[in-house]
Design a binder for these strands. Structure first.
Lengths: 172, 172
DNA sequence: ACAGGAATCGTTCTTAATGTACCATTCGGG
DNA sequence: CCCGAATGGTACATTAAGAACGATTCCTGT
């Protein structure tokens, strides 16, 4: 029952386990890939390591399958549920999000924008249409949170496309 | 002369040292804070640690002041310059940028958007006007890279404001 | 001219995250 | 029924982040 610091990673894992009722790391990996990973991705090694940490701290319980693969199945404890609830309710701490885009970094340091922009436009357009499809899929379901988050992603992808497209054909 | 992996952090340090001619870690800290840190921030401990790494690998040289504080002064080597140049020229590797916004994470998991949105709007508006002032300041100078990067920041801040403002007074 | 606090400058230590490579089990098709 | 692909899991080394603390210089009031 060691005390640990809860990071965004922790809350993502906690949140997903709560949603699912129970989950193996592999399940978590799939859940991350199919949604939240677009917003905040986790390395797959973390998806195995983090639940262990949370278990040691008493936020999750771990049981192992008996048969073959002996997978670990995690479930939330009351402590975990309440920690998650508390976090959800708090004002989000104000560390402003950063763009952290490699292409933009190069532009900052003087790389030729047109070279870079062409490719960026393509990729962001792809991402954009991926999101648009996802949006369709979510429309019906009763998942307002993920849908709202997705719309943020849509907005920023549109903005990226706008930005790079402008650079791409500036004084072409 | 140990080989090391060059990370974005490495290139930021390298780029700043090249620009400045020579720099102490403290100088770097200031340079990061006054511009590129908005796009890709560095912990101040990294600003001390990274030049050491780069020095061991032969990309920078380190000399110490004699007097009192014995500060370390870094300069780029030819190897450093060419590594940086090569990186600048390469196609940027395509890891799509993530939003990684705590507030948005909470919305994803079902927090009440209106609670969160109000504050987010305020903060992004503040950031936006900070950027607008910075833009004015950069207008004249011959710094097209930083200016272009800043414009990306401006666009995304505008998008954030739009997004959160919409959530804030939805069915208010 | 000097005491003391503010600002500047720097380091250490611990924990978390990333990257990469690799190993094991199950399943489906020829 | 065996072999390769997909699935599921682990280990390890490096880098990043976070927090706390330590030292030097500068400035100001008395």
């Amino acid at each position: 029952m060691e005390p640990i610091r809860l990071t965004p990673t922790s809350y993502i894992v906690l949140g997903l386990v709560i949603e699912a009722g129970e989950a193996t790391p592999y399940d978590l990996k799939a859940m991350v890939a199919g949604g939240i990973g677009n917003l905040w991705s986790l390395q797959h090694t973390q998806v195995y390591a983090e639940p262990e940490r949370l278990t040691k701290a008493g936020y999750l319980t771990e049981t192992r399958e008996e048969g073959g693969r002996r997978r670990k199945v995690y479930r939330v404890t009351p402590a975990g549920r309440s920690a998650f609830g508390a976090w959800l309710g708090e004002e989000p701490s104000a560390d402003p999000p950063e763009l952290r885009d490699i292409g933009l970094l190069k532009v900052f340091f003087g790389a030729d924008p047109r070279q870079i922009a062409a490719r960026q436009v393509r990729e962001h357009r792809a991402k954009l249409s991926e999101y648009q499809e996802l949006e369709q899929a979510l429309q019906g379901a009763d998942v307002s949170g993920p849908l709202l988050a997705l719309r943020a992603g849509l907005g920023h992808e549109r903005e990226w496309v706008r930005y790079w497209a402008e650079l791409a054909d500036e004084d072409a």
